[in-house]
Amino acid sequence: MPTGVHLRDVRGQLFHAAERVLLRDGPNALTSRAVTTEADVAKGVLHRHFADFDDFLAELVRDRLARLADQAALLEAAAGTRSVTENLVDALTDLFDPISVALTSLIFFRDELRTRLRGESGEKGLPILSEAQAMLATYLSAEREQGRIAPNADLSALAVSLIGAAHLIFAGRPRQSLPDPTELEKMVNTVMADPLQRRLL
């Protein structure tokens, strides 16, 4: 089997195993032994493909960020369709799936992981949440161009408010459970009430 194909298969197998451990047992249970046991491979397999466990975790997060980039493109393309609230509720629900919530906690508590993810680029903020904020700000900008949000709305502040409030709603629930959609809709309506109303004045 070609080496490149083999590597992708092993990486995917280990990433999926790590996600299962996160969902079942939480961030504190995510160790190299837990991942290789879950993947049903020898412990040395992980270290043959990654420099160390934090390197593995960094690649796991980057894999999730790549998916977020795809989601951002779809959300921006949705500007002008349905309602702003509906688009935001769906985007936040997709964004804060149980794996992303668990990874956010992992990044918050592992200094070495944050350093690897942000050290080379010098970017600030918590990975995943920072990218999510940028995603929402870009979408809101597209909606403002469509005339569906007040022209003087502070898009960065709105995005921060939406991400922060949504993270509290999702992270405060038992693992793998989702909040009542009406709770999330109420929060989005509250944050967006002023810029949505002022566009009509």
Rank of each mutant, 00 (worst) to 15 (best):
1 M>V: 13
2 P>D: 12
2 P>S: 13
7 L>I: 14
8 R>P: 00
9 D>V: 11
9 D>H: 13
10 V>S: 13
11 R>N: 11
13 Q>H: 15
13 Q>N: 04
15 F>I: 04
17 A>G: 02
17 A>L: 02
20 R>L: 11
21 V>G: 00
26 G>E: 01
26 G>C: 02
27 P>N: 03
29 A>M: 04
30 L>M: 05
30 L>G: 02
32 S>E: 00
33 R>Q: 10
35 V>W: 07
36 T>P: 14
39 A>K: 01
40 D>L: 10
40 D>N: 13
43 K>G: 09
43 K>F: 09
43 K>L: 10
43 K>P: 15
43 K>N: 13
44 G>W: 09
45 V>H: 04
46 L>T: 02
46 L>K: 02
46 L>C: 00
47 H>W: 07
48 R>D: 08
49 H>A: 10
49 H>R: 15
49 H>I: 12
50 F>I: 12
51 A>T: 15
53 F>L: 00
53 F>K: 03
55 D>R: 09
57 L>K: 07
58 A>P: 05
59 E>R: 15
60 L>C: 03
61 V>Q: 07
64 R>C: 04
66 A>W: 05
67 R>M: 12
71 Q>P: 02
75 L>D: 03
76 E>K: 08
76 E>N: 14
76 E>V: 09
78 A>T: 11
78 A>V: 05
79 A>D: 04
80 G>V: 02
85 T>P: 03
91 A>N: 08
92 L>Y: 01
93 T>P: 03
94 D>R: 15
98 P>Q: 07
98 P>E: 06
99 I>F: 04
100 S>D: 10
100 S>F: 07
100 S>V: 08
100 S>W: 07
104 T>C: 09
105 S>V: 13
106 L>Q: 06
108 F>H: 12
109 F>V: 15
111 D>S: 10
112 E>D: 14
112 E>L: 11
113 L>Q: 02
114 R>H: 14
116 R>W: 09
118 R>A: 09
118 R>T: 15
119 G>R: 08
119 G>Q: 07
120 E>K: 12
121 S>G: 00
123 E>I: 13
124 K>C: 06
124 K>S: 15
126 L>G: 07
126 L>M: 15
127 P>L: 09
128 I>V: 14
130 S>M: 11
130 S>D: 08
131 E>G: 05
132 A>E: 02
133 Q>T: 15
134 A>I: 11
135 M>I: 11
138 T>D: 12
138 T>C: 05
138 T>A: 14
139 Y>L: 00
139 Y>V: 00
139 Y>M: 03
141 S>A: 12
143 E>Q: 05
144 R>E: 08
146 Q>Y: 08
147 G>A: 07
150 A>P: 14
150 A>C: 06
151 P>H: 01
156 S>M: 11
159 A>S: 14
159 A>M: 03
165 A>E: 09
165 A>C: 10
167 H>E: 10
168 L>G: 12
169 I>Y: 01
171 A>N: 12
176 Q>W: 05
176 Q>L: 12
177 S>W: 06
178 L>Q: 12
181 P>C: 00
182 T>Q: 10
183 E>H: 00
183 E>G: 00
185 E>R: 01
186 K>H: 12
187 M>Q: 03
190 T>L: 10
192 M>N: 08
193 A>L: 14
194 D>N: 10
196 L>K: 01
198 R>I: 06
200 L>W: 09
201 L>K: 00
